[in-house]
């Protein structure tokens, strides 16, 4: 079954958005949060998308949204589907799928720490994952300024010369001007 046929089959049942194909083997589609679980379960159990490749987030701060991306793969048919769920940035909470793929718990734990997106019921969700004693904004949010943080937190090493990367590259790569 091609990606387009699969989309046509599932579109109404799970309120899928437009299919965005990227070649024949990869496509992206958006689904409402309330339909996510049903869609993932059907894709896994009926359509052979048994491999959860990754789960991550994108911060669309200017739109007030977090995008969760669930990447699923059907190995037999060599098809990968990226499923997007948009969350309100102010109420950043997703639905745990650790019961569908146990390994999802690790991704969800990281998303809680790095983006502040909660997944109630996910194992060890509140335990520190990578950061230790972190009290600032979740650092992968766009409004966390890593440069300001490092300037406030760490002292400048004496004797170090810092170039502005853009100007330095310009002088090295395009000495005659661009």
């Amino acid at each position: 079954m091609e990606m387009r046929h699969l989309h046509a089959l599932l579109k109404q049942r799970h309120s899928l958005g437009q299919l965005e194909p990227k070649g024949g083997k990869l496509a992206f589609v958006t689904v409402p949060r309330e339909n996510l679980r049903g869609l993932l379960t059907e894709l896994r159990d009926v359509h052979g998308f048994t491999h959860l490749v990754l789960l991550t987030a994108v911060d669309w701060m200017e739109d007030g949204l977090f995008q969760l991306t669930y990447m699923l793969n059907n190995r037999g048919r060599d098809m990968t589907l990226g499923i997007r769920v948009m969350l309100d940035r102010q109420e950043a909470q997703g639905d745990s799928i650790h019961d569908l793929w146990p390994t999802a718990a690790t991704y969800q734990r990281e998303l809680k720490e790095m983006f502040g997106i909660d997944f109630p019921g996910s194992p060890r969700i509140d335990e520190e994952f990578i950061l230790e004693g972190w009290t600032d904004l979740p650092p992968y949010r766009r409004d966390f300024d890593s440069l300001a943080y490092s300037q406030q937190t760490y002292a400048e090493r004496p004797g170090r010369v810092t170039h502005d990367p853009r100007e330095y590259m310009k002088s090295k790569l395009y000495p005659d001007g661009v």
Binding site: M71, R166, M169, Y174, V178
Partner: peptide, 15 residues
């Protein structure tokens, strides 16, 4: 020109 290189909005996964 790598100093002015803008890439249109999109997403992909390469494995």
């Amino acid at each position: 020109n790598v100093l002015h290189w803008k890439i249109p909005r999109g997403e992909t996964y390469i494995k």
